[in-house]
């Protein structure tokens, strides 16, 4: 196992990068910090990921003209767009898209309630509480029309 150590400053920069790549201004830092730790853990699973993450974080300020953490969200995203294909940033995104959105604190912010089995499902907890549209028919159509499975012109031998 490789052993890549990242300083608190590098970790903070990684958190800032994650917040710029996945801008959710109302989210707390917790999910991004946990995701940063997951990225660092991944970097310690194989040498290539570790090497590329170290190189990427070490050069990010330089790429940003001195101080990536000081950039506005818009400018930071623009800088990241320029390096979208860099291996370290790809590796970060691969971990982040799972880590951030599998985080229960994020689910709470997004309004997702998750598992409901232990609470009796959503049957009595709002599975049909949408009230801004009329209640639709749930049975199959039983009116006078018949679905035309094959258009007349598409019958074998039909003149087209």
């Amino acid at each position: 196992m490789p052993d890549f150590t990242f300083t608190p400053t590098q970790r903070a920069l990684l958190v800032r990068l994650l917040r710029a790549a996945y801008p959710h201004p109302t989210f707390p830092d917790g999910p991004f910090e946990r995701t940063a730790d997951a990225v660092i853990a991944k970097a310690n699973e194989n040498t290539w990921d570790g090497l590329t993450l170290a190189a990427g974080l070490n050069s990010l300020d330089e790429r940003a003209g001195g101080n990536f953490a000081g950039l506005s969200d818009d400018v930071a995203e623009k800088v990241l767009r320029e390096i979208a294909d860099a291996p370290f940033f790809r590796m970060i995104r691969g971990v982040a898209v799972v880590g951030i959105y599998d985080d229960h604190e994020v689910w709470e912010r997004l309004g997702y309630e998750g598992s409901s089995f232990e609470l009796g499902g959503y049957l009595h907890r709002g599975f049909d509480d949408l009230d801004w549209l009329p209640d639709p028919r749930i049975t199959e159509y039983d009116g006078p029309d018949q679905l035309v499975e094959v258009a007349p012109d598409d019958e074998p031998g039909a003149q087209s």
Binding site: Y122, G126, F127, D128, L130, L133, P134, P136, R137, I138
Partner: peptide, 12 residues
């Protein structure tokens, strides 16, 4: 099955 929320939008 009864109509759930996603179905209400879909069928509507």
């Amino acid at each position: 099955l009864p109509a759930n929320n996603n179905y209400k939008v879909f069928a509507g």
